[in-house]
């Protein structure tokens, strides 16, 4: 498969009053066409920065210090004006966490669709798109204001708005976090089914490890502004390699046996991302040794995965070749 998205040693900071706060550090990643990538990690690890920079949506405080993003061979960071708007409109689409905040409260769903498709056939297209996400009752949905819909219906409408223009990449930032647990799976089902139908790749950001592992081809684990592990989903679920990924998975209910105690991961991610050499996770890592704080652990191939940990061999009893 050809690469759709290529991110190369991307470093991003946010400007504050007197200094720069690092959010992403030397991040590299490749996404194939139609691939579904899940990104997990605690809050403040750079997941949302990563997802917004792909649409060049960092806001005025964001600074790209280093690196490139290419989408379909084109340099995204050089886009501006009409070129940027057409890239956002036609190539990518976003689904954000809370549909009630994502929809303009003063406009009906129909009016918001009409802003997306200028064609005279907008109504027919909107009706088809709504049917695609299971909202067949368009006579009620189109003239409704967002607050008149349930959270699940609103998120379905948001998904229909995101996919109606057939993007090549959908970026979903915690798409089910604001929804009832009972409808999370059905929303994820229709999201992935529709993406598969139009051949759109997906980046799903979530705290919900079961969701990620069920729907994604690959999983990336972020910690302190970097990917510490990128692995095929099936391998990752069976055996995460990086100590942070292992701890995240161990703290997920449902993985332990009947009598086992649910693990919790002590501490929290560093409040600001340090560029000092050394593994950022070392402070919380139970496998830490002196060399861990000596240099950046690079992402190295380990079977089908890529892991950034110098002690892989010792932890898993195999050579990190």
């Amino acid at each position: 498969m050809r690469d759709l998205l290529n991110v190369e040693s991307l470093t991003i900071s946010y400007r504050t009053r007197d200094h720069l706060v690092t959010a992403l550090l030397e991040v590299s990643l490749t996404l194939a066409q139609g691939e579904i990538l899940g990104i997990i990690g605690e809050s403040g690890c750079g997941k949302s920065t990563f997802s917004s920079v792909i649409g060049k949506l960092l806001g005025p405080a964001g600074v790209v210090e280093n690196g490139h993003i290419t989408f379909g061979g084109k340099d995204v960071l050089s886009f501006s004006g009409q070129e940027l708007r057409s890239y956002r409109a036609n190539d990518i689409a976003y689904v954000f966490q809370d549909p009630m905040n994502t929809l303009d409260p003063t406009k009906t769903i129909g009016a918001q669709f009409r802003r997306l498709i200028s064609a005279s056939a907008w109504r027919q297209k909107a009706i088809e798109a709504l049917a695609h996400v299971g909202l067949t009752d368009w006579r009620r949905v189109l003239p409704s204001y967002p607050h008149q819909l349930s959270g699940g219906m609103a998120q379905r409408a948001v998904i229909a708005m995101a996919l109606i223009r057939k993007p090549r990449l959908l970026i979903a930032d915690e798409p089910t976090a604001a929804l009832d647990a009972s409808i999370r799976c059905s929303v994820m089902d229709l999201l992935t089914a529709w993406c598969a139908e139009i051949g759109s790749a997906m980046i799903i950001i979530s705290h919900d490890i079961p969701v990620i592992s069920n729907y994604c081809d690959r999983i990336g684990v972020m910690y302190a502004g970097r990917f510490v592990e990128i692995a095929p989903a099936e391998d990752f679920i069976v055996g995460p390699r990086h100590p942070y990924a292992m701890a995240l998975l161990a703290s997920e209910p449902g993985q332990e046996g009947e009598d086992a105690v649910l693990q919790s991961l002590e501490g929290s991610p560093p409040p600001s991302i340090s560029r000092a050499p050394g593994c950022a996770f070392a402070d919380r890592c139970i496998y830490r040794t002196a060399p861990c704080s000596a240099g950046f652990p690079p992402l190295v191939a380990c079977g089908s995965s890529k892991v950034a940990c110098i002690r892989l061999g010792d932890i898993h009893g195999e050579a990190a070749s």
């Binding site: 940027l84 036609n90 990518i92 905040n101 994502t102 406009k107």
Partner: peptide, 26 residues
Amino acid sequence: SKDYIMAAQARGEEPRDIVRGHVLRN
């Protein structure tokens, strides 16, 4: 600072349309 403004930007709406369509009304 509202999400729907960011969402409108993410959909590639023109700044002029965002001001006229979303900001003024709200």
